[in-house]
Each structure stands twice: as C-alpha cells, then as structure tokens.
C-alpha cells in the first residue's frame, strides 16, 4: 500500500460554482495542509456537495483555482512554496458521496477487492491484498460480513463498508459528503477514529456535514456566507451580464 506523501497542501482560491444555472457560492478561498480537517457547513442547497465534486475534479468551477501540491519531506512552509510539485487531481483524493459505490449483488469482499485494485497502481500479492482488505474491514468492525452480498446489509452497515473503501488505497485528501449519514453512534465513533488516524498519518479531510464529526475542525466554513446576496449575482441573464 502506497504511503501518503509527507507534506500535502491544497489551496482553493476564489472559487465560484453554479448548479442548474444558479450561482451557489463565489469568492470561496481557503487552504488546508497535512493533518488538517475542514468542515463545510450550510443548509441544504448551499452547494456543499457541489464544492466537494469540484475539488474531486468531476467538473470545472466557473472561476477560481484548486491547487494541490506535495513534498516528499516535511519542510517549513515558505521553503515548500518553491519546491512543491503541483499535482493533477486524479489519484490524489478519495471522494465519498452520499452513495457507497458498491455493487449490491456482489459480496462485500469482491466490492472492496475491486476498489483496492482500482486505487493501487501496482498489483499487490494475494496475501498482501487480503491483509489490506481485512484491515479495512476491521477498522469498521465488519470483518465478519465479508462474504455477504452488499445488498443484504442494513443502511448503517452499508455506510460502514462505504467508509472502509477509503482504506483500500492511500490517498492524501479525503472528500467526504455527509459521511455520518446512516451511521449509528458506534459507527460514528469508529469513523471519527479512522479520520483521526488518517490525519495523524499526514492526510487531509474536507467534510461536508450537518452533524458534528466528533473531531475538532481546523477550518470551519459556512457556505451560506459565500452566496451572492443580490438576485443579479445569483441568476445568469445573458442580456445583463458584463
């Protein structure tokens, strides 16, 4: 399993996004580095999911930039500015949406094995792959369910498996959309622990959520603060646009 590079930084600058022709937020800027977690708040429809999908690279923002950089050895921040390598977003992040990305008719093990191979460039040996899968399942206390078809699990169990996907391949940046939805208290505690370990290993987390994660947030953003305040700013009118 590949290791997370030692120092990672993501910089978001002047981001603006639309959905269905309506501007959701603009001038959104923040930066995050290894070991930090950003929590995105905001009512339904303020663009939390859209922001995560923009960062995941599913589609481009209207304006603004998302820069990712990493260094293999920990440096002081100013030095890093010069030496960092900007990365394409592919292969950099794990994106967890409200869906769990599992085939219902396949077994939990088959599902996780697929993602493990998908996220790992070099093919692992059979023994090593087994270990990775077992570890991922262990972390969410679901090892006993490995051979059941995914469809047979309850909502909370499905979410646990969805979360364990993040552990099948090393990615520095985790983009989590309502990670706690469907989880019971024990599941939420397990998830906080997984996040804590990821942060301790030098990872980054950007989570969009209504519910508290059980982790102290380094950055807390409310997207409602970034929405345009005038109707002119929200709706595109081709005859009025500058």
């Amino acid at each position: 399993m590949a290791e997370i590079p030692q120092y990672v930084r993501i910089e978001i600058e002047g981001l603006q996004a639309q959905r269905g022709g309506k501007i959701l937020f603009s001038q959104l800027s923040f930066s995050l580095q290894s070991g930090q977690i950003a929590v995105i708040n905001g009512a339904n429809g303020t663009g939390k999911s859209t922001l995560l999908r923009l960062i995941a690279g599913l589609y481009p923002p209207l304006s603004g930039t998302i820069d990712l950089s990493m260094a293999t050895a920990q440096k002081t921040a100013p030095a890093l500015e010069n030496k960092n390598i900007s990365l394409p977003r592919q292969g950099f992040s794990h994106y967890l949406s409200d869906k769990n990305a599992m085939k219902p008719q396949l077994s939990v093990r088959d599902n996780l094995r697929f993602w493990c191979r998908f996220f790992t460039d070099k093919r692992l040996g059979a023994g090593e792959e087994k270990k990775v899968l077992l570890r991922a399942l262990d972390k969410v206390k679901m090892a006993a369910y490995a051979d059941l078809p995914f469809a047979a699990l309850s909502t909370g169990q499905k979410r646990r498996i969805g979360l364990s996907r993040l552990l099948t391949g090393a990615r520095p940046l985790w983009l989590l959309d309502e990670p706690g939805s469907g989880l019971d208290q024990a599941g939420a505690a397990l998830f906080s622990q997984i996040c804590r370990e990821h942060l301790a290993a030098g990872g980054l987390v950007i989570a969009a959520t209504h519910t508290p994660l059980g982790l102290p947030a380094d950055i807390s953003l409310n997207l409602a603060d970034y929405r345009p305040q005038t109707p002119e700013g929200q709706f595109y009118d081709p005859l009025q646009a500058g």
Binding site: A56, P88, Y95, K103
Partner: peptide, 17 residues
C-alpha cells in the same frame, strides 16, 4: 446507469483522464 446509481461512476470519472 448502474454505476451512476451506486456512485462508482463518480469515483471512476474523478480518478481518470
């Protein structure tokens, strides 16, 4: 469509050029 419904298409799209 099945991949889109279960969410795996997003991950595949985000991971690929």
């Amino acid at each position: 469509q099945t991949d889109k419904e279960d969410g795996s298409l997003d991950i595949i799209l985000a991971a690929g050029d």
